[in-house]
């Protein structure tokens, strides 16, 4: 007989998959909305992103004989679309969003998750690389922008391993549930900032030229999902206490209630992070500066997080001279009253 937590964890995984696909364009629309509002221009509606995807989904495929590059682009686009969407959906099954203790908890390694996300970002830009000069250069610039984050991911793995002796996300998050974000878990707040700067701030825009129709709709959806998962990862590290625990509740009602609260908190977390990102984008001046700032800022934050971790969590051994002086002092005093 299947136990209740196991059944719930399977159900949760499936729900997570659906919720990511449903909410990713909304969150992306909210982010664009906030960016526009903060810069003072007319803001597009939040549902605009969903409208674009639906329009592209229903659009006809381009005429195959109109351009010599069209058949080539369509082959590359169909392969890249499948790869990107598949990768993103698999990652959405691995990342804890509303609750920890998923059926896939033992598979959620930080290396696997983040590098799979990187693969998805590369796949999203692949069709544009086959386009014309301006499109290809822009796409390659976006790829460079995404790849500057890879060293940061390795540093965050150091942080994970130093605390939990593992790089498993679920295990590390479970260990952080009781800590305070301003106390012992401060390094992880910094790491979340680094993840936010490195991953979520990257430009996932799918280029206008080249891909149309269903492939373009799926690519846009994959880019939005990828962005949402970066936000979720950062949110998990910011506030691990917001994740519900399935095994805590013995009844179905209690578990469903906890999961609902978990999903609600996940949406709130993502919206807050969107506002932070939109406000942060105002500070950066231009695209090159933004890439450089992101790379350098994320690296510094990750290094700083490790430094804070070593300073706060592990005991500092007194240097040898101090120990010698202390022992000499004890010997002299003999432990008795002066």
């Amino acid at each position: 007989m299947i136990s209740l937590p196991f059944f719930l964890s399977i159900l949760l995984s499936m729900t997570q998959l659906v919720v990511v696909v449903m909410f990713a364009p909304l969150i992306a629309g909210f982010r664009v909305f906030m960016s526009a509002r903060l810069t003072g221009v007319a803001a597009p509606p939040v549902l605009r992103r969903w409208y674009l995807i639906a329009t592209q989904w229903c659009a006809d495929s381009p005429d195959q004989n109109s351009d010599p590059l069209t058949p080539q682009t369509s082959i590359v686009a169909s392969c890249a679309t499948t790869a990107a969407m598949t990768t993103v959906l698999v990652v959405s099954l691995l990342v804890p969003m509303a609750a920890s203790g998923l059926a896939t908890a033992h598979l959620s390694d930080i290396f696997v998750i983040t590098l799979l996300l990187m693969s998805a970002q590369i796949a999203c830009q692949l069709p544009a690389l086959g386009g014309q000069a301006e499109t290809a250069t822009t796409a390659f610039r976006r790829l460079i922008s995404a790849s500057v984050a890879i060293p940061v991911l390795f540093l965050i793995a150091v942080l994970f391993f130093s605390v939990g002796a593992t790089t498993n996300l679920d295990v590390v998050l479970s260990g952080l549930r009781s800590g305070s974000p301003f106390g012992d878990d401060a390094p992880f707040v910094l790491a979340a900032l680094a993840l936010l700067v490195a991953g979520a701030a990257s430009d996932c825009t799918v280029s206008d030229v080249g891909v149309t129709g269903t492939d373009r709709a799926i690519l846009m959806l994959a880019a939005d999902c990828s962005s949402l998962i970066w936000l979720t990862l950062a949110g998990d590290l910011f506030w691990p206490g917001s994740l519900a625990l399935i095994s805590e509740h013995q009844t179905v009602t209690g578990s469903v209630g906890a999961l609902s609260v978990g999903f609600l908190l996940w949406i709130v977390r993502c919206c807050v992070l969107c506002v932070i990102l939109a406000a942060g984008n105002l500070v950066a001046a231009g695209p090159v500066t933004r890439i450089r700032l992101r790379g350098a800022g994320a690296l510094l934050l990750a290094f700083f997080a490790i430094q804070v971790l070593f300073g706060s969590r592990f005991p500092i051994m007194p240097y040898r001279g101090a120990v010698h002086e202390q022992s000499t002092f004890d010997d002299n005093t003999g432990g008795g009253p002066l």
Binding site: V76, L129, G130, A136, F140, S147, I150, P151, L153, F154
Partner: peptide, 27 residues
């Protein structure tokens, strides 16, 4: 060393993508 490993991965991935872009795709 770990950060360097990450940087090496990033650079080699970009190099492979550059070859794909210049040789295989486009006109």
């Amino acid at each position: 060393l770990l950060a360097s490993l990450g940087a090496i991965v990033a650079l080699f991935s970009l190099a492979v993508l550059r070859l794909v872009m210049l040789v295989m795709l486009g006109g």
